[in-house]
Design a protein around this nucleic acid. Structure first.
Lengths: 220, 220
DNA sequence: AATTATTTTTAGTTTTGTCTAAATTTATTT
DNA sequence: AAATAAATTTAGACAAAACTAAAAATAATT
């Protein structure tokens, strides 16, 4: 397994994440994601293509190759293991771990990563509820859906929150909704798309469509 | 507190370490320590001088300023905390931790470092026996001396081993000498400078001058 | 289909950190 | 003290990764 620079790794990771929702990833999307300029993206894409980490024809967008995906999963494995470490062992709040993990993920020493995994007890998901690839790069496919798409009376587990502003966190805290909370929708109101939801056996309460749109859940 | 690049940090750390034994640090010493070229050292020293991290007049060698020392102690604090983490929590051997800590030390996030310190229980020394600076940059001054200089019948604690080759480690293991071992010299033989030493109440045994020259101890 | 707008790429700079080779300064010998 | 050796610095080049501005290709409109 070759070694890649921090910068190369950041681009690989960006393409991986953008690929999950978009079929083919564009220059502008990557530039937006990494807060860099399109010209810089083109430069790097040429380089990663030469290293056979992604397929790319000019003006046609990019997709990771099998090898590129393997590299991406290694980065994501490291990122999520460190996030878990920060939250579980160092008692960081779950909304503070990402930034620090962005730096730790670039240390590629295999023994470090595998020993960390062992120390943590081989966690399956990070503090945001996203699955952690194993040492072979295998990752659970969780079909994560938006809470707005969850059928009525189907119990689901809160997996992630797309917006991480303090405003939404304040609201979630007040409603006692956090990562890992199991809930179900009891009723949808067509007028304002608000949802009546229930956590366990507690009394049902209402959340707005704006809030629901930012909550993602897994079920089954 | 400003932020410095990985490269700048490596030079600062090199000067700090070389300063401990040498009064003034030279270009060639730093180049040798960092396995880089003298011309590169000169370039960087100019830059660090401009940032007021060290004093330097051309052809005259370098010394860290108070500010430079503060930065160096921050790097050393991070390095040694991670070494402790790797050895104590991830069960790395004490001779494997340095290399990985060289990478981890460059992550400067203060909350990470202080939380790590807390998680580890505020350790005083790293796995090599070297003191860990506290959050304010305060470091214990341990007068570390070579085992060859230890007076007879004075109990001392093994602090570090200068050579880290597998050959010396094999010998140390056989003699049951490791970091933290408390021992005293019972007799010195002038002829070959060999030493008769005793660990606790066990029977005394002999070690060669070549071995003793590589063992450093603290006493009092 | 031609024009306009958008996206992407190219070309040329910039910054950081490294290097080699040559020049300069300091140290050591004879 | 002059000559030689060693250490250090300067000058100029290079690679990586970013940027700006202009050119080229693609997409969207009229």
């Amino acid at each position: 397994m070759l070694n890649y620079s921090t910068s190369e790794e950041n681009y690989i990771k960006a393409v991986y994440h953008l690929q999950l929702t978009d079929d083919s990833v564009t220059t502008n999307e990557v530039a937006g994601y990494l807060k860099t300029k399109p010209a810089s993206v083109t430069d790097m894409m040429k380089k990663l293509k030469a290293k056979k980490l992604l397929n790319y024809e000019r003006y046609r967008g990019f997709r990771l190759t099998a090898e590129g995906t393997k590299v991406a999963l290694g980065i994501i494995r490291r990122h999520r293991l460190w996030e878990y470490f920060l939250a579980e062992k160092l008692r960081f709040n779950w909304d503070e771990v990402h930034e620090v993990a962005e730096e730790l993920e670039h240390i590629t020493n295999k023994k470090l990563v595998d020993k960390l995994d062992e120390f943590l007890g081989y966690p399956r998901t990070d503090p945001h509820g996203d699955p952690i690839p194993d040492a072979n790069g295998k990752i659970e496919v969780t079909r994560k859906i938006c809470l707005t798409e969850l059928p009525v009376n189907k119990t689901a587990t809160v997996n992630s929150v797309s917006d991480q502003s303090s405003k939404i966190l304040e609201l979630l805290e007040h409603k006692k909704i956090s990562i890992g909370t199991r809930l179900e929708i009891k009723k949808r109101f067509e007028f304002d798309k608000s949802l009546e939801i229930r956590i366990g056996r507690q009394p049902a309460f209402t959340i707005s469509s704006q809030l629901a749109e930012n909550i993602f859940v897994t079920h089954e």
